[in-house]
Amino acid sequence: MSSYNEEQAVTLEIIRQYFSGPGDRKQALLEIIRPYLEFRKRTDLFLEEHFADLCTAKCYQSNLSACCSKEGIVAFFADAAVNAAVSSEQSLDRITSVTSRPNTGMKCVFLTPEGCLWKVKPIVCQMFLCAAAEKQVFGGNPDLQEEWNRLEAEKKTFTWPDKPVLFDELEKIFMDQGYQSPLMYCHNSPGLMMVKKKAGLL
């Protein structure tokens, strides 16, 4: 098992253990992430309408994708927690299965012939747009570019810890119960810790 797969497997196991604890922890988490899921739905609709056909043909089908052709995508702990909260046990079992064995393919470990195993993809993956795609879609359409800029700005209200944000909060919920994951970047990444320090949050 690669270090990437191990980090993903350990993180998912932690989340599943937490959900199996007392009370309906999964439902409680769903309530916390509801605004984020609404944001993701709007983002998905935008990408589906303006980029899906282009990116599928030029990147995924051609094997040129800068994301999907790597071993795996960059994922925060919050990404995994959100996905686990909205996924069935069967779906999570499939993720556990693929991360428990070597990835012998040329694409992301989570990418199958039927598509991505994540129901809510990591935000870095879902909102990545290459320069060529942006130029083709946004060129000559400033209104569309501005709409995307607003979505990018809204993303930071959930992910960028220069103020209390969801991604930091989700890590803390699990940490307060004694769980630790290598993907808890909001509490372990030197760069993000500096962001929090400069914002007066530490």
Rank of each mutant, 00 (worst) to 15 (best):
Y179D: 04
V120Y: 09
P102V: 02
M194C: 00
A75C: 08
E48Q: 12
T112A: 00
G72P: 03
L144G: 08
P190F: 02
Q180A: 15
E7D: 15
E71S: 07
A132S: 13
L166F: 04
S65A: 12
P122W: 02
N63R: 11
L92I: 06
G140C: 04
D143W: 06
N83W: 00
E147M: 12
F167W: 09
A133L: 08
T157L: 09
G115T: 08
S2W: 04
M193A: 10
I32N: 06
T11I: 03
Q61D: 12
A80I: 09
T11V: 11
E7P: 02
G23F: 05
V86M: 02
K156M: 09
T112C: 10
I14H: 12
F110R: 07
L37E: 00
S100Y: 01
A28N: 14
S20K: 14
E152H: 02
E71C: 00
I32S: 04
L12D: 10
D168Y: 02
P161Q: 08
L201S: 07
L151K: 01
L29S: 03
L29Y: 04
F46S: 07
D162K: 05
F110H: 08
Q27K: 14
F77Q: 05
T96D: 11
A57V: 15
A85D: 01
A57Q: 15
L29T: 11
A28M: 11
E48N: 11
G72K: 01
F19P: 02
E49I: 09
G115M: 00
A28G: 13
E48Y: 10
I32R: 14
S3N: 07
W118T: 06
D79K: 02
R150E: 13
K58D: 14
D162M: 03
L47M: 11
F46H: 10
G21M: 15
Y4E: 11
A75P: 12
G23S: 02
Y185S: 10
F158L: 01
P35F: 00
Y185C: 04
K70G: 13
N149H: 13
R101K: 13
K58A: 11
T96E: 15
V124N: 13
E38H: 11
H50V: 00
K135Q: 14
Q180I: 04
C68I: 01
L29F: 05
I123K: 00
A85M: 01
K135D: 14
L151Y: 09
D79E: 08
P161E: 03
F19G: 01
L144S: 03
K26Q: 15
K107E: 12
A131F: 12
L117K: 02
F76C: 13
L166G: 06
L45Q: 14
A80C: 13
R101G: 04
W118D: 06
P122D: 07
R40I: 10
G178H: 09
V120L: 10
I33R: 04
E49C: 08
V74M: 10
Y185M: 07
C68L: 05
S62K: 15
L183E: 05
P122H: 10
D53P: 06
E7M: 12
E31F: 07
T99F: 09
V165P: 04
R101Q: 14
S2L: 05
D53G: 14
L201C: 05
P102Q: 00
A57S: 15
D44T: 01
C130V: 06
L37F: 01
Y60L: 15
L29C: 10
E134H: 02
K41G: 10
K119E: 15
G140S: 11
P164C: 07
